[in-house]
């Protein structure tokens, strides 16, 4: 692009600017998409943690009740 600009000085700045606008638009879109993906990832991490917590609690509850049953039986 730069060599082109040197070869055709008339109006090449405008051409470069127009294509840069297109590139910038794509980049901004990409950036927003990446940002939203980050938010989604955060929510998924929180979800995973909550599921882990739930599972741990269930396991704990189950062992506790088993223990209680054992106490009752004995």
């Amino acid at each position: 692009m730069l060599t082109l600009a040197a070869n055709f000085p008339d109006g090449s700045g405008y051409v470069l600017a127009a294509y840069l606008v297109f590139a910038a638009l794509l980049l901004v879109y990409l950036g927003i998409t990446a940002y939203r993906l980050l938010g989604l990832e955060k929510r998924l991490t929180k979800l995973t943690e909550e599921v882990d917590g739930l599972e741990r609690q269930r396991a704990h509850d189950a062992t506790a009740s088993e223990h209680e049953e054992e106490v009752k039986l004995s």
């Binding site: 692009m1 082109l4 055709f8 008339d10 109006g11 090449s12 405008y14 051409v15």
Partner: peptide, 27 residues
């Protein structure tokens, strides 16, 4: 865009700035 830059001829009336055409009009 590469073809537009190197293969397409320079338009007689508008010169080099006509190359904006290849991104503006399709868009």
């Amino acid at each position: 865009f590469v073809l537009a830059a190197y293969y397409a001829p320079i338009e007689a009336d508008q010169g080099f700035s006509q190359k904006i055409f290849y991104v503006h009009v399709p868009m």
